[in-house]
Design a protein around this nucleic acid. Structure first.
Lengths: 162, 162
DNA sequence: CTATATGCAAATCGTTTGCACCTTA
DNA sequence: TAAGGTGCAAACGATTTGCATATAG
């Protein structure tokens, strides 16, 4: 459960594994794929497992500065690349700003994106996978994933505007 | 109407204005916004009005080489920027490849994207705007647009794989 | 004529890569 | 100790920008 300041809006995320469980899962997956578990990687996994605010690579890096002052941004990108290969992180690509990452829910799911402040949240909106199946049947495409973003002003930025 | 080679798949796009009408609309919009209608711009509008294959800026440029050998890629980007401002072109952003543009249907609508060859088509899939409205009501976001992409292998690339 | 557009080349910026030095297992 | 990881700096590539010249209205 999570809520916006200055707003009565609340939304729930489906009951999923805890952050700790997610981090452990991701670590196990990397190890299984033959990768080493360094302190840097574990720290990056921890941030991505929480994915609070759907951070960019730079935000992950910034968040770890206190604990790991010498960690380089390249290491963050390299770790994210491994996780992408393993299907353990969802990447939201943008061409006009940093990509954003969700390691807590790596399966495709809808996002609400504030066009003013860049906030990204997970709304509760079930029943989309059916759409993908239907499309596969109708079009001959072998649909394997999807992306659904809604763009608009979040309650906070809405208030600021008026 | 349009179809893939080596495939019985067909899809239809909603009945819309013809390419010529779209081009004229876009030109009128630019003029109304105080911009000049140069031969380069008109040529770019023509390609975007058709939007066959949802071209990238580079593809638009390449397609116009024969007629306008001296046209620069920067001019294509600048014209697209004007059209984006005017809401006359839909931009599909990607961070790992060129952005793609649709000037024929500038309103948000679903896309089917082949992860192998990059083909982009418009499937017929009505009833999504309701979703956006519902989300607005539920979340407090002022949802103004959306993006829905389905990723998979198109029939042609599917055949090549097996 | 004058504001605006074009074309070129340089700048931007997120991301990736090469490589010498470290670390995990 | 060997395979793989880290950090740095340079390279990349799509897009944007500055500016001198050209052109639409």
């Amino acid at each position: 459960m999570q809520s916006y300041p200055n707003s009565s809006w609340k939304y729930t995320v489906p009951k999923l594994s805890s952050f700790e469980e997610r981090q452990a899962d991701m670590a196990a997956r990397l190890k299984a794929a033959g990768h080493k578990l360094t302190p840097q990687r574990l720290a990056i996994l921890k941030v991505l497992a929480a994915s609070e605010g759907h951070p960019s690579a730079e935000q992950v890096h910034a968040r770890l500065q206190p604990e790991h002052p010498s960690m380089s941004l390249a290491t963050v990108y390299k770790t994210i690349a491994l996780l992408k290969q393993a299907g353990e992180v969802l990447e939201l690509q943008f061409s006009d700003r940093d990509n954003r990452y969700d390691g807590h829910r790596p399966d495709p799911h809808p996002h609400l994106i504030c066009t003013a402040c860049g906030a990204i949240v997970d709304p509760d909106l079930p029943g989309l996978d059916n759409l993908a199946e239907e499309l596969s049947r109708r079009t001959g495409f072998a649909v394997s994933s999807h992306r659904l973003d809604f763009y608009g002003l979040c309650p906070v930025c809405r208030a600021k505007q008026s």
